[in-house]
């Protein structure tokens, strides 16, 4: 029964949420959870074959600069396409999910502010129900983390995580 409880609660929450989707917007919680900062995460498809691109219109934040050029320095591909992106608060007390895609996503737990700026994090990269890697990291504002993920088609899936400047 204990194992089923979170699923039941999730179903109840989801049912209520989508039932009220077309109703009035939900009010924000009275007390917003404390945060350590905000991250931007993106799932990117890298390929040399332009015909494989999916035609996504997603754009990286302007302050990140020429993301494709930076990716090309690390990954030997010609084309980089943002499939999905997610801007997410890093909660101080709770886990945070960065889900630009249900196929490849991140769970983040804050380990507190880092010395000399940034945030200490415990990262988990998930693919469906399988965790690919667990890492302890320090994210600095404006310094992206490129995670080389699994191969797909003739290319590769890449996860980009960036701590945004306050």
């Amino acid at each position: 029964m204990k194992a089923l409880l979170p699923t039941l609660l999730l179903l109840i929450a989801g049912t209520n949420l989508f039932a009220q989707e077309k109703a009035a917007p939900q009010p924000l919680p009275a007390v917003k959870p404390a945060t350590e900062g905000k991250v931007w995460g993106a799932l990117i498809f890298a390929t040399n074959d332009a015909s494989q691109l999916l035609g996504s219109q997603e754009k990286a934040p302007a302050h990140l600069g020429p993301l494709n050029d930076r990716l090309a320095k690390v990954f030997a591909f010609k084309h980089f396409e943002i499939l999905g992106q997610h801007q997410q608060d890093i909660f101080r007390e709770y886990e945070s999910w960065v889900v630009p895609s249900r196929d490849l996503f991140l769970k983040i737990d804050s380990n507190g502010p880092a010395d000399n700026g940034g945030v200490k994090l415990h990262l988990q990269v998930w693919r469906d129900q399988q965790v690919l890697v667990k890492s302890d990291a320090v994210l600095r504002p404006g310094s992206p983390l490129f995670i080389g993920g699994p191969k797909w088609k003739d290319g590769r899936l890449i996860f980009v995580l960036l701590l945004e400047r306050k």
């Binding site: 799932l43 992106q85 895609s101 699994p150 899936l157």
Partner: peptide, 22 residues
Amino acid sequence: ATVLMLDGLEEVPADRKISGIS
């Protein structure tokens, strides 16, 4: 950029549709 490279992962089947959300 800081790079975390994962090698040896099982490939995603080519016929699987990968989609993103914003």
